[in-house]
């Protein structure tokens, strides 16, 4: 009899702890789903395409490769053109259109200029892309980095938290610091 009581108690305990665990698991799942939904909402493939081209352009400038940067500028013009704002609110659409227009102009200039000029335009372009990400979000963790020396202080975005300066390239590769992490 005592044995039976013990086993019932154990069973009960097990059941309770099991449901409890399930509850917890569910909560975790809910949380994950929430997060997943957010991630989904925050990842626009066309915005990711723009970001990819932007990062290739940045890498070309880091490598002091003006020719490559010009090519990436041309690609960026195309991916900016392909951007579709229809899934955003009216207000966001207006701001995105403004950003795209500005970014396109800078990319066009980058596509046909010498490296100093490319870097000048890259500065404003970086501001545009940063503002775009604030609206569209991104699936990757980005680092907003900042070089206090170039043109009274200039920022850019990178997928790597290590500094590789696109404004100076090999002349001052590691000048700058991470200003903000964008997730």
């Amino acid at each position: 009899m005592k044995k039976l009581k013990m086993s019932i108690a154990t069973m009960l305990l097990l059941v309770v702890s099991f449901t409890n665990a399930q509850e917890k698991e569910k909560m975790k799942m809910d949380h994950k789903m929430d997060h997943g939904k957010m991630m989904n909402m925050n990842s626009d493939p066309k915005a990711e395409a723009i970001l990819n081209d932007y990062f290739s352009l940045k890498d070309a400038l880091v490598a002091d490769d003006s020719k490559k940067a010009a090519q990436e500028g041309t690609k960026l013009v195309a991916s900016l053109k392909a951007f579709d704002t229809s899934s955003y609110t009216k207000e966001q659409q207006e701001e995105l259109a403004d950003i795209i227009e500005d970014a396109t102009e800078h990319s066009e200039h980058i596509a046909e200029s010498a490296i100093d000029h490319q870097r000048e335009h890259f500065k404003t372009l970086s501001k545009d892309i940063t503002d775009m990400v604030a609206i569209t979000g991104t699936k990757n963790t980005l680092y907003q980095q900042f070089c206090p020396m170039y043109d009274k202080g200039s920022a850019w975005l990178s997928t790597d938290n290590e500094i590789r300066n696109p404004y100076y390239g090999s002349r001052m590769l590691k000048c700058g610091k991470v200003q903000k992490t964008i997730q």
């Binding site: 403004d98 500005d102 102009e105 800078h106 503002d131």
Partner: peptide, 19 residues
């Protein structure tokens, strides 16, 4: 022009004259 575009143009004006 929007404020963003104006800022952009003014920056270009400055750079063009500077250079």
């Amino acid at each position: 022009l929007s404020t963003r575009r104006k800022t952009s143009k003014l920056r270009s004006i400055i750079k063009q004259i500077e250079n």
